[in-house]
Simulated scan of single mutants.
Amino acid sequence: MNRIQYLFNTKKERVLSIYFTAGFPHLEDTLPIMEAIQAGGADIIEIGVPYSDPIADGPTIQDSNQIALENGMSLKKLFEQLKGFRAKINLPVVLMGYLNPIIQYGMEEFCQKCKEVGIDGLILPDLPMQQYLDDYKEMFEKYDLFNTFLISPQTSEKRIREIDANSNGFIYMVSSHSITGAKSGISEEQVTYFERVKAMGLKNPRLIGFGISDAETFSTASQYSNGAIIGSAFIKKIKDSANLNADIQEYIKSVIQ
């Protein structure tokens, strides 16, 4: 059983996914950050593959992408870093990235490498569903990779149900029609959207992302979904950290308290 599937079979609420950019703040921080996220008590690790034009991301994550690229991070380097990580990490691990660098690397080779090192799923915001169904679904299934689609307040019910029918891990609920890190707190308008999607009775679990940063926003998001994803707030925490391991564990514990 895929680790993502196992997680949601065994934990139905307050699932916390932590996003960080591979190779940030320093090139060789990838595995130490993963270990600290696991030790802190998070449930899913989401590794961002740095890209020069991350369209869904705000200034904080864009900046981390730029620094990681300047540090020398690449897909090839990331797979080298991830080799053998399963000896230490038992959490589900998802790669979040954009199509361009993956296609340049070679989609089948990319999927093969994911399987080889122990990746469980992918989040590719610029992969259209029809292209996924036509070109990549069989390939992802061959290498046991769950694909996660994003929905937003503007996504129609028909589209959400289509995404639900073609998903096998979880659905990423973007909390607002904006870029990551653009807002703090959760508005009444967002709660209305959360309630609307919750009432649809989807078969897949849902995690809410964008604007989740602390115990309060995590708890609010968890009332309307299976949990939440924290990205920009985590990147800010680790950017100037003098002790990554201690600071990461302290931050995650403060969120899930």
Score class of each variant (00 low, 15 high):
A39N: 15
I238V: 14
L95P: 02
K253A: 10
S74K: 03
L99F: 13
Y136D: 10
L27E: 00
P59H: 09
E80Q: 13
M73H: 05
A165Q: 15
V255C: 13
E157A: 12
G48A: 06
Q131P: 03
D57Q: 07
K236L: 11
I171K: 06
G48H: 02
M107W: 10
Q130W: 06
V15S: 04
M173P: 04
T21F: 01
D240Y: 14
K142E: 14
I45M: 00
I186D: 08
I4E: 01
S175H: 02
I212K: 00
P92G: 09
Y19W: 06
Q190Y: 04
S213D: 10
N2A: 06
L16P: 08
K198Q: 15
S74F: 00
R86C: 04
N9Q: 13
K115V: 01
Q104A: 13
D29Y: 00
E116G: 08
T21C: 12
E188N: 14
S184A: 12
G169F: 02
A233C: 11
Y6G: 09
S52Y: 00
R14Y: 13
K237S: 07
T21G: 01
Y143T: 05
Y193C: 01
S74D: 08
G23H: 03
G227P: 05
Q257M: 09
E162Y: 12
G106H: 11
K237W: 06
F20M: 07
V49I: 15
A182F: 07
P128F: 11
F146C: 12
M173Q: 12
Y251F: 15
N9T: 07
D240T: 12
K12L: 11
I47D: 02
A228M: 06
T60W: 02
G181H: 02
M96P: 08
D57E: 14
G72E: 01
R196T: 11
A42D: 03
D53V: 08
L207H: 02
P92M: 09
K198M: 11
E108N: 04
Q112R: 14
S156T: 15
E109Q: 14
L133P: 12
M200G: 07
L99H: 10
A215N: 15
Q249H: 07
T148S: 12
Y132V: 03
L99E: 10
K77D: 09
P205D: 12
A56T: 10
Q223F: 05
I4M: 10
D120R: 01
V94E: 02
K142L: 08
E28M: 01
Q131S: 15
Q249M: 14
K183Y: 11
A42W: 00
V197I: 15
